[in-house]
Design a protein around this nucleic acid. Structure first.
Lengths: 194, 194, 194, 194
DNA sequence: GTGTAATCGAGACGGTACGTCCTGTCTTCGG
DNA sequence: CCGAAGACAGGACGTACCGTCTCGATTACAC
């Protein structure tokens, strides 16, 4: 009733699907995004090339599907109630994600690709783990209605500095999440009190 | 006296060099970074493939050399004396560069590539047009000694939000440079007055 | 029963195979062996370069396969019963093959290549159209058991003079097969009667 | 009087010439004819590429010049007075030359190349070490006027079998020069006595 | 001495083939 | 219909040599 009602023929092999997603994860770690090829993925997954192409068009899509859930999870934090603590915790998670996590490496690779491949750009704009997680944290920690700037801009103020720092190749150890959090909150308050 | 006075062998052909740099610029605009190939560059420049490889190893290197001067120029602003005006002007230049300029497209492509190619990453960290320009502006507009945070972090606070906004594919028209500038300055002042 | 009954995967394209063999024949005639390249062959055959390399490693192998059957056919003669006539007919066929036939040109090119390429040398020693045909003719025309010298040496005596004449670039018209045949037979008989 | 009377400009460097000829000899032995390149020759000789091209057009020309004298010397034999001994001695020298000598390897390489390169063919027909040496031996050993066949054909009968044997890749040890010599002489006598 | 002219080294140049790799599609057989 | 296997056209990869060229430096002869 609720499924494709008459899926005639042999059903999709779920083992093949997960083997491919795992292969992509492994290869990202082992050889990097650039050296990752559709051929390599299929061979690593022990799957025919056609099977990969049947379900995904680009390696970006596979990588996106393979890492999206991890990204969401890694960027979700439990709130304490204290705004400064919460923002700090979020920035710590963000830095960990961007600089040290495999899902974050996948995200950076995809975002890099998106700069010169509109298909990947569209993929990313459809599901935006950074923006989504930041929106949630800001709403919960600071309140949606008391924000002196639109929520979307606030996410950019929150994410931007760390994002730039990591993507421009700077050392993540030089960044202090608590200071960034203070700066973010005080900046908004300064605007508010004018 | 001050130059290499005995360059043995046939000298490098300067026309070939500029033809290659121009070809890279043209191709970036016409077909985009991903579809730009060493073969395509050499053919567009009317130059042998070997000649390209003799002087550059990767298309990234050529693009970097072709766009570095433009980037520097586009990000340099003349200062008025008023900090808010200056920061605003800089952010306007930054947004124009990242979102609309050819040199900016080159920069974004290279930065994207740097996420999964350490050779390109090194290339970019050697010459950092965004950081350099931001450092200059902050020093001149706000004074180097009165900054409540290290200069390097301040550049991240200044550049980060716009950088994230554009690279994550958001609409540049939704960003108001003056507001970003106010936020940047007030945030720093709030820190200072604590 | 007698064939590979389970050839997995897409079967080889027989059209591509014959197109390549024809292309090699054509190119040998049109541009000569030296100017014949793997690239040229693939383009002439309307076939991808990979497809050529998939089945043959060197142009020599293709040429060998393309001309072996023709060589065998051109060097096979129908026997009359008279030894002198038969040997004469064989030498006529041999001269025609070496000096005027396309398959002969292929054979000379391969033999030339074999002088400085051991891979080609092995190829030729595995299938030796001159030796094979001469062996047959001598056995049938003169009898195997009455030969005063080993069969193998007899083939060298039969083939050698014409072979040297042509390969050293001398004019085939100056060679009279009947005289060579007489000389060959009388030489053997002289040995025999001692 | 007998030399170029006014060779203006810097004279040719004789050291460079011999260095090139030696390099060709060395490379023929070390890497073989096919892998021998003009670039490799110049580098091995410690000479600029232009200097090689100034005096020779093809590697075949250099190799020819480098080996012609050796070939002539190796194929010249001192006559004893007994025809059978002389012919046998010549065939021994011929086999040694073709199968084991460096100059012989050069000759085979050039003759091989001549099968598909008319420039090399012309080179070889201008100076024919095998034919020349065989003519001399036959004239001296058997007398020019008593030959029952034209001298040129006689050389083919003498050289041909060994020539075919070696160039077709057969084992030189299986060939007995004395038997070949007997066969050659008896064959001619049989013709004569008819 | 002071041209003039040819040689030599070094090495850049436009070209072209090399053999390999990956792309995305296809064609077969078997589940 | 799905999937494994693998052939196919196409095209870029980076390398090697080709034969030519453009330099500066050298080495002879002629004036």
């Amino acid at each position: 009733m609720n499924k494709e009602h008459n899926p005639v023929g042999r059903p999709r092999n779920e083992q093949a699907r997960t083997a491919i997603l795992n292969a992509v994860d492994d290869l990202l770690f082992e050889v990097g995004y650039a050296a990752m090829t559709m051929k390599g993925i299929s061979e690593r997954a022990g799957v025919s090339r056609q099977t990969v192409y049947r379900w995904w068009s680009h390696k970006a899509e596979i990588l996106f599907e393979a890492s999206a859930a991890d990204a969401e999870e890694e960027l979700a934090i439990s709130l304490s109630g204290d705004p400064l603590d919460d923002i700090t915790a979020y920035l710590e998670a963000l830095l960990r994600f961007l600089a040290h996590s495999l899902a974050g490496a996948a995200y950076r690779a995809l975002l890099g690709e998106a700069q010169h491949d509109s298909v990947v750009a569209e993929l990313l704009s459809a599901k935006d783990p950074l923006g989504d997680s930041a929106r949630v944290v800001i709403e919960r920690a600071l309140g949606k209605d008391t924000l002196p700037v639109p929520l979307e801009q606030a996410t950019a103020l929150l994410i931007g500095p760390s994002f730039f720092w990591i993507l421009s190749g700077r050392d993540p150890a030089q960044l202090v999440p608590r200071e960034l959090a203070e700066n973010f909150i005080h900046g908004l308050q300064a605007r508010q009190s004018r």
